[in-house]
Design a protein around this nucleic acid. Structure first.
Lengths: 340, 340
DNA sequence: AACCTCCAAGAAAACGTTTTCAAGACAATA
DNA sequence: TATTGTCTTGAAAACGTTTTCTTGGAGGTT
């Protein structure tokens, strides 16, 4: 590989001069700068970013830590992050940690060993690595959390108002006449899992709907598990008239269960999905769903981080809380209430 | 940050000794090795991989170049790659280039400046950067291509037999009695786009089916465009009895068009999708589709690359060609042929 | 002619590792 | 005792940059 030294030698100047020319720094005459630039192109010179990183302690690399890139929610958020980061010449190391906190720890260490300029993370559910995150922050690592957050950590984050999202959905169902509502929630120990469940319980209580513990089950944010739970719920003698999903996998699980049992949507069962995937709008019937603003989430997270990095912004943590929106389609039926 | 120097100083030994101890090299006594390891843990030492990379010219980083991480095909392949690479301590820099070859070139340069150990890429459609790839290979960069490939480049690749996949589908439709078949293909200048289209044309010719240029349109691998094309095709006075998609976005486009026009599947129109996404099996009716073995694709690509890197394997290029499979569900109807 | 000022240019140090090589300690053998 | 061998240790160079600081020359002013 051709290095600055090679350019310097072939031009009979010093490496210092070449470096300055290449980086548009002052202290080089127009003439020499031009000759350096030309020679660099001629030789096909490409910066060695490891060496540069060593000197400048800046790598223009951001670590992104998520549970599953296969989940459209995450891949959409990442796309949006990349858009803003790429414009500023940063790029991403993406780490898939599943729900494995051991792996999360390993990846975090890897990211610091790679000297990333910052980290954007959706922590694993169990919060095992709280102390790791805290340590990183204490050592000056810039961290932005998103989707899930760890309550006792002082750092920027961007989330949606999960509780309100589900609360609103329950209210909507109630308005449509539903009094028996089931939910497949996620991982109870995770922020999103917990908040969404809370929203559900609160709404059911506030609105005086039927409360039935058997209609509330954890699908661990997985299709197979959600499918099993939904089957259990829908096969009971007294089953809910509406089911709420709490992520895109649980939506699929519910739908598959309904299909297997032969329940027609929305005639026999109303369903509200989570996350707005393209197939939902062409499904028969089109699925009413809660939509997270993935683009805004990604953009905000990236912008917050960039702010910390570039402006060395060290004010106290900023919290971006976004609203999810209900997209009304046709998977919810109106139920006639006898006594109105 | 604590460095090897710090450990050395606090223990009164040399950095050479510390390095050897940390890396399990010979030439250090048991006693000192133990003391180094303990001290490292105590101080919270983390390797600086930039510095290490400089010396060893190895970064344990692989660049992955794709068009769109939001496409489930790619995210599944990446997940599979990551599984095998993570096990060997490598990690991934993922580059989303859209279909933008300028961006592809920039990202390729970035990857070499970051000194990645190898690159796995699905090149952009237009093949603009053929010379860039060729140059990289000539300079010793290990490259594995997947999904799409650039014909005149001598390197490892893994693809599916695209032509055969579509050919088989057409044959299947013919067997079901269809003689009027339409297709929404991808980007004609891309490998996948071109091959899939070729398979279609060949099959139609070989099997003596009705050939109608108006039923063959390019959806550019995008939902919106595919939708428009499908609409055009399905609104003609004489429309095909079956439509074939050539990636997951075209599938959606066709489905949406059919829905809008009010064509019942499979009664009024048979549809064959591409890529097997989870929603397809719970759709009504479940969609018959061509499934690519994403896990094998990812695994093979990663393994090929690892082989080149770790064994410095320099034999001639190896080609992995996989078969796509047709998953028969219920979106294709049987048509009675009059004269049998 | 003497003295400044300005600026281009280069020498050298530094970033944090790994690796080579020489030196020294000790034991074993002749 | 002298010689050889084995093994632990450290000094120093190197990877490819950036950056600081010094130098020296050109040009301008008294």
């Amino acid at each position: 590989m051709v290095s600055i030294k090679d350019i310097a030698k072939s031009l009979g100047v010093s490496t210092a001069t070449v470096s300055k020319a290449l980086n548009n720094k002052i202290g080089v005459s127009k003439e020499i700068r031009l000759r350096v630039l030309n020679k660099a192109k001629e030789l096909g010179y490409i910066t060695n970013n490891l060496a540069r990183g060593m000197k400048t302690s800046k790598t223009f690399t951001i670590g992104v830590l998520i549970s599953d890139i296969t989940n459209p929610f995450f891949s959409e958020v990442i796309l949006s992050m990349e858009r803003v980061l790429y414009a500023k010449k940063y790029n991403l190391i993406i780490c898939n940690v599943g729900e494995n906190s051991e792996r999360e720890r390993e990846y975090l260490e890897l990211l610091v060993s790679k000297k990333v300029d910052g980290i954007i993370a959706a922590p694993t559910a169990d919060g095992q690595n709280m102390s790791v995150y805290r340590n990183l922050i204490r050592h000056g690592m810039k961290i932005v959390l998103f989707d899930r957050l760890i309550s006792k950590i002082e750092t920027d984050f961007v989330v949606i108002d999960n509780k309100a999202a589900i609360y609103d959905v329950v209210r909507y169902l109630a308005k449509m006449g539903h009094r028996k509502i089931g939910v497949i929630y996620g991982i109870e120990s995770s922020y999103t899992g917990c908040e969404r469940l809370k929203g559900f319980r609160e709404a059911v209580k506030d609105l005086g709907l039927e409360s039935h513990e058997e209609w509330i089950k954890s699908g661990y944010f997985m299709e197979s598990e959600s499918h099993k739970c939904a089957l259990d719920i829908l096969k009971e003698k007294e089953r809910p008239t509406a089911m709420i999903a709490t992520n895109d996998f649980t939506t699929l699980g519910i739908m598959r269960a309904a299909k297997e049992i032969g329940l027609k949507i929305p005639r026999d069962l109303s369903v509200i999905g989570f996350d707005d995937l393209e197939w939902m709008s062409i499904y028969s019937p089109p699925i009413t769903t809660i939509s997270q603003p993935t683009d805004v989430i990604g953009m905000s997270a990236a912008t917050l981080l960039l702010d910390r990095i570039e402006n060395n912004d060290t004010r106290r943590p900023r919290h971006v809380i976004l609203k999810a929106t209900l997209i009304e389609r046709e998977s919810v039926s109106k139920i006639q209430t006898r006594n109105v």
